[in-house]
């Protein structure tokens, strides 16, 4: 895929969010070798020659009657999907490492922009909720063209994160606010109390929403590959501890993996798509995950 050539780091340097989103999504779609314009809708788009193996229900028998050839009807997609992208803008999201200079929040911003672009391209309604320990910005979901600019504007002005995450209450609030069932895309490192997170997510499910979580992490958070003694400061609480990471690496990885596994398992239980993302991963993965989810929702 051509997108893979551009790393998130390089993409982030491009600056204009609109351009970035376009570049990412178009590149991604070209790479798919399949037109997203041809969905399965009521609005006819064109005929295509029948390929053996396709369901015979799609064959236009009238055309067969006239031409004695098998053709399938291709419809332009008509959507009624409402997607809301939830972006965690807490302090922990500003973490970046020496190896990966893109912070999680930056990555989330780009990913949110790309998803918005893609969704709108699919004629889906897109909304944005930006939060930390409280809601910071909210763009209600709409499927209009200028929605892109609304969303990108909010993403452009994400304030410097200085707060702790409090995902649970925010999720409850958003769940209450969203009027009808739709798709919730959560971009977060989920650095909060897992019980509260799950409580919020349950609320979404209860309200009939489909949920995709892009769990954003810096590879260093997973690997914890630091060398030499250092003073570690918590981005959210400001607490500090002096440790030799080499001594704690194994134990840290164990605890961290337990936490991720728990989140993953509980999400699976709620039938929530849980996508592990690291800030060095190409955006394709996220976009593809979204498309898969979208296809299942059809």
């Amino acid at each position: 895929m051509s997108q893979s050539i551009l790393t998130p780091d390089q993409v982030a340097k491009l600056g204009n969010l609109d351009v970035i989103a376009r570049l990412v999504v178009e590149g991604f779609l070209v790479g798919l070798h399949r037109s997203p314009y041809h969905g399965f809708s009521v609005e006819f788009a064109e005929y295509r020659q029948y390929i053996p193996g396709e369901p015979a229900t799609n064959i236009d028998w009238r055309v067969f009657g006239k031409s004695d050839r098998y053709y399938t009807k291709i419809y332009a997609e008509e959507t009624n999907l409402r997607a809301t992208i939830l972006v965690d803008a807490s302090s922990s999201m500003s973490f970046k490492s020496d190896e990966n200079s893109t912070s999680k929040i930056e990555y989330a911003r780009l990913l949110a922009a790309s998803l918005t672009y893609l969704l709108l391209k699919q004629n889906d309604a897109v909304g944005l909720e930006l939060f930390s320990d409280k809601q910071l910005a909210s763009v209600p979901a709409r499927a209009v063209r200028k929605q892109l600019f609304q969303v990108l504007k909010e993403l452009d002005y994400i304030p410097e994160p200085k707060s702790t995450t409090s995902i649970g209450p925010v999720l409850h609030k958003v769940a209450e606010k969203l009027p009808r069932r739709g798709l919730i895309i959560l971009l977060s490192d989920l650095m909060d109390d897992p019980d509260e997170i799950m409580s919020g997510l349950k609320h979404f499910r209860y309200r009939g929403h489909e949920v995709v979580i892009f769990h954003l992490l810096n590879p260093q958070e997973i690997e914890f590959d630091y060398r030499g003694e250092a003073r570690f400061e918590d981005l959210e609480t400001g607490n500090a501890m002096k440790i030799d990471p080499t001594h704690l690496r194994t134990s840290y990885r164990e605890k961290f993996e337990q936490w991720r596994t728990r989140l993953r398992e509980e999400c699976r239980g709620l039938k929530i798509d849980f996508v592990d993302m690291t800030v060095d991963a190409p955006f394709d993965r996220a976009l593809m995950a979204y498309l898969r989810k979208r296809a299942r929702m059809r």
Binding site: M93, F95, R231, F232, E233, L235, A240, L248, S251, E254
Partner: peptide, 26 residues
């Protein structure tokens, strides 16, 4: 000692509980 800003110390704190004493001795 260098300063590292880290996303969440929770896991480090949990790991540290068991290891700190033996690390000091070592």
């Amino acid at each position: 000692t260098k300063r590292v800003l880290f996303s969440n110390l929770q896991f480090l704190e949990e790991a540290q509980v068991n290891r700190s004493r033996s690390i000091g001795l070592r």
